[in-house]
Structure formats: structure tokens, C-alpha cells
Amino acid sequence: MSRTNSKLLQFTVVFAVVSALVYLIEYFIPSGKGGSLLFNLLFWVAIVEGAVAVVAAAVVTNGKWIFPYKRDLLGVYPLLLLITFLFVAFIPRIEYYPWAHEPGIWLNKNLFIIRCIVFLLAAFGTAHLLAREVLRDGPKKRFYAVIYLLVYVISQTSVAFDWVMSLNYPWYSTLFGGYFFIEAFYTGLALGGILTFLLYKQYQQMEGFPKAQMDMATLLFAFSVFWGSQFYTQYLVIWYGNLPEEVSLIVHRISHSPTRELSYLVIVLLFFIPFVTLISRKLKANPRFLLIISLIVWLGIALERLILIGPVLTVHPVPLIIEFFLVGALFIWVFRQRDQFLAVAGP
């Protein structure tokens, strides 16, 4: 058994144990209609799938800026397996979806579970192949990158439509899938921003790093604009149309405190702050500042997802925080072991 595979097996065991622990926390701490696990799933799936998608996109476009980052961004892909386990722990919560007791052809419990698990495992499998091929600079790296990106788009669309949109049924928006995979890419780039600070000394040794850092920061800026445009596009059409089934999602959230204030805060965190600050070349070149902006982006994404599920499911702070830090600790643990399971030598 190769070092990568034995390490993945070890991860699988640890992930299964942690998922069992999350299951106990989720279901044995009284928290009403628990939304904490769904929140954690939504937050971490965006970061992990997004980080791998950033590398895949750079491979497809021959982006040289990815060179210092690729190994570290790919280092988080085993967590897709953890997310699959956590999704299994989430299955009893499907009862809270409005369609659960009136199943349709697409929205029925069994098909929902099967397709979500298939998409998550497909994302893990293709990310694994991509990581192996990219790190050994294999001839099929572009092929796997394209495959991963296709799976990523399907997986994130499923996350948006199945996990979130169907929770707010009968609300619907055709842009929601695209909005989610753009957001996930944005969070993946933000992970790059965090790595710039954390691994600055290591990265500095690499040729062309200052330029790569600038490109990463510029992409973060570009995605803040892109996110803003997608948000505005979706909002404007819904607002102008003023159809009850469409505006319901927004009205429920901006009519009451604290979701109203938090909704405004999301726009500030995901658009205004990165847009205004990252215009400056000086700030883009500052790793500490990139860390702050990236954490702001993550906070914005976390709040947005909380707001999306909050009014439908109850998000109790105790299980939310415990589960968040548990998954976060695993994230760090897996990341620290990346050199062991990404066994192929490379920068």
C-alpha cells in the first residue's frame, strides 16, 4: 500500500470517529430544529471544494501564479471525505425539509441522499486524481483538472439547490447554483490569502513568489467584484419582479433583527471591504493584510450561510461552536500532514 493510500485510510478512520462524535453532539444536545450541522457542512464544503477548484482552474489556464500555492491548496482535499461522513450524520435532519413529507420525483429523501453522497464522493475522487497528477506534473493533469471542475460545478449546484434552496421552498432562483460555485471559488482563493501569511517564509524562497502573491490578491479583488455583481444581479431581478414566492426569502430576512443587520454586514464583508482595500497595490503586497481580508471573506461566507438556513432551522450556539471547532481542528490536522499523504515529491 502506498504512503498516500495508507494515510488516506488513517484519515478515513479518524473522520468516521469524528463524524460519530458530531452525530452525538448534534442529536443529544437539545437544540430544536438543529441547523448547526448543515451550517458546518455548507461552510467547509465551500472551502475545501473551492481550494481544489482554484488549483484546477489555474492548471487549465496554465496560470503560473499557482506555483507556490498548489501543493498547500491541494492538501485539504481529503476533507471532502470528512464532509461525506458528516453528510451521513446529517441524514436524520432531512425530515425538516418542507418537501420531506410530500416527496416529489426529484425532491425525495432517498434520491436526495444518493445524489448528494455521489456528488461528494465524485468530488473527492477527482480531487485525489488531480492532486496526484498535478504534483508529479503528469501529462493528464489538464484532463483531471477539467473533470474536477465539471464535478465541482455539479456538486456546488447540488449544494445550492438541494441543501439550501429546497430548505426555503417554494423560493427559487436559477442563479443560485452559479452563485454558490462562485462563492466557493472565492473562499478557496481566501484560503490562498491565509496561506500567504502562514507560509510566507517558505514561499519567499520560491522563484516568482511576489508576483504570484500579487496575482492571488488581484484575483481576490476580482472575485469580490464578481461576487458583488452576482449578488446584485440576483437581488435586482427578484426585487423588480416583486413576486411573492421570490421576495419571500429576502423579506423574511430583512424584516427582523438580527438577520437584517447581519444581511447588510454580509455585503460589507464580501464586497465593500475587499473591493475598497484591495485596490491598493501596497495592501495587496502585505501578507498580514491578505490574512485579515481572507478571514473577513470567510466570516462573510459563514454569516451568509447562517442567514440562509437560520430562519428555517434553529441554529443553537453550543452544538454550532463545538462542531465548528471540531471540524476546524481536523482541517488543521489534515493540512499539517499534507507532506505525508501528498507523497509525490514536488514544490
Binding site: S173, T174, L175, F176, G178, S229, Q230, T233, Q234, V237, I238, G241, L243
Partner: peptide
């Protein structure tokens, strides 16, 4: 016509 995905 009335669909949010139209712009992108």
C-alpha cells in the same frame, strides 16, 4: 424571461 440567471 423572468429568471435570475439571465445576466451571467
Amino acid at each position: 424571461w423572468h429568471t435570475t440567471i439571465f445576466a451571467p
